[in-house]
């Protein structure tokens, strides 16, 4: 285990080497947050409720996006397609390390750093703008939120891993990752807007995919719009998707390493 903790530490140190890049990355996150924040603030200027969301619930959703993007979306698994294509993966294959564990610890380091910065940014923004923020009324909601977020972290990890491992077979892995790992993840995950503001036919299709369980459903739990059985159902489906993608990524890894040509390695 200690070697994986060392890998996590090295990942953190890499960020300290490229500090300016990391600061720019945080600036981008703040711009993204502010754009959404001002948009919704303008929407609520003449109304108290939109699609069943009060202003405080929507603001909680926006802050939740910023927070969960750091917890669930922040990932270093995106490095894997590059490692497969340029052959860097080879050195890890001959070392006594598990790629799954190594990537997970790199992810964890990335998440820890992002969460720290996000919390500071959110506190500053809350202090400056002082807007209503929905706090759950029931203690059980906190427990449910922590549970579904915890499962969503693993779902995000295995989903990302699954998409990255397709690089074993594709000439250009970036297009697959961009469409499924960025566009689908961001939009179907609910990181631009709550999915239930879309027409119901479209929302119903999106609910059939694993993406809404990464961000949208955890935030529906926080805003207490999913209560009791519905919330437990969301947690259950999230667990099922996680198990599915765990096995899919294991299968892809086994088949992929057999197919691996180590070009450039």
């Amino acid at each position: 285990m200690s070697k994986y903790i060392q890998i996590g530490k090295i990942t953190l140190l890499e960020y300290l080497v490229y500090r300016l890049n990391y600061i720019f990355w945080r600036v981008r996150s703040v711009i993204f947050f502010l754009t959404l924040f001002f948009f919704w603030l303008a929407i609520y200027k003449n109304t108290t409720s939109v699609f069943g969301y009060s202003q405080s619930q929507m603001m909680a959703y926006i802050i939740g996006i910023a927070f969960l993007r750091s917890v669930v979306f922040a990932s270093r698994v995106g490095d894997l397609p590059g490692m497969i294509r340029d052959g860097t993966l080879t050195k890890f294959l001959i070392q006594p390390v598990s790629i799954f564990k190594m990537m997970f610890f790199r992810d964890t380091a990335d998440k820890l750093l992002n969460i720290t910065f996000t919390i500071v940014e959110i506190v500053i923004i809350l202090a400056i703008f002082k807007f209503p923020f929905y706090i759950p009324q029931h203690t059980f909601t906190y427990l449910l939120f922590i549970t579904i977020t915890f499962v969503a972290v693993f779902l995000g990890y295995f989903l990302n891993l699954f998409l990255s491992l397709t690089a074993f077979w594709t000439e250009d892995p970036w297009s697959t990752r961009w469409v499924f790992g960025v566009i689908f993840l961001e939009f179907f995950g609910g990181s631009y807007f709550p999915i239930d503001v879309l027409p119901s036919w479209l929302a119903s299709i999106i609910y059939l995919t694993p993406f809404p369980y990464l961000l949208y459903f955890p935030l529906k739990v926080w805003t207490e719009q999913l209560a009791g059985f519905q919330a437990l159902q969301a947690v259950g489906i999230c667990i099922i998707w996680t198990v599915i993608f765990y096995f899919l990524s294991r299968i892809l890894w086994k088949k992929g390493t057999k197919n691996y040509g180590a070009y450039g390695g």
Binding site: I43, V50, F51, T170, E171, D172, W174, S175, T176, W178, V179, V182, I183, F187, Y192, F193, V197, L198, P199, L202
Partner: peptide, 29 residues
Amino acid sequence: TVGSGYLFLFGKVLRLVLLFIFLYSILSA
């Protein structure tokens, strides 16, 4: 890599369409 080109194109169009639908839905309300 034709598939890759089409995937990028699909992603760009999807992003545009989804944002349009989102804005349309919100403003309809």
